[in-house]
């Protein structure tokens, strides 16, 4: 086996460990404290917010306004439509030279 293939397979194993690890830990410990439960319930919002936040800084005015439009519209309309509105705002403002 070449070093490249070995590295790839070890990286794959390490990645799979992260993807199944959290679940295995939860199964092992069963009943969890209410604070752990609250933290887990917050995972989607906390991690996704952390994932998106730097885009506010990197996207300039079009990026910030596009994210704002998508955020507000997503509370009312479907995800596809709100993403489409955000893209439209982004491209419109970029075309306007902002």
């Amino acid at each position: 086996m070449s070093d490249t293939v070995l590295i790839i397979l070890l990286c794959a194993a390490a990645t799979y460990l992260t993807r199944i690890g959290g679940h295995l830990i939860m199964v092992r410990f069963g009943q969890v404290h209410h604070r752990v439960e609250a933290a887990l319930a917050a995972v989607p919002v906390a991690i996704l917010s952390a994932l998106v936040a730097p885009s506010l800084m990197a996207g300039g005015v079009p990026g910030v306004l596009a994210l704002g439009v998508t955020a507000l519209s997503a509370m009312r309309v479907s995800l596809v439509i709100s993403v489409g509105l955000g893209v439209a705002v982004l491209l419109g403002l970029r075309a306007a030279g902002l």
Partner: peptide
């Protein structure tokens, strides 16, 4: 706008919560 598609998608998903 493909460079910004994922941030917008994640933003929309966040608001669902």
């Amino acid at each position: 706008g493909m460079d910004f598609l994922l941030p917008l998608y994640f933003m929309g998903l966040i608001m669902g919560f």
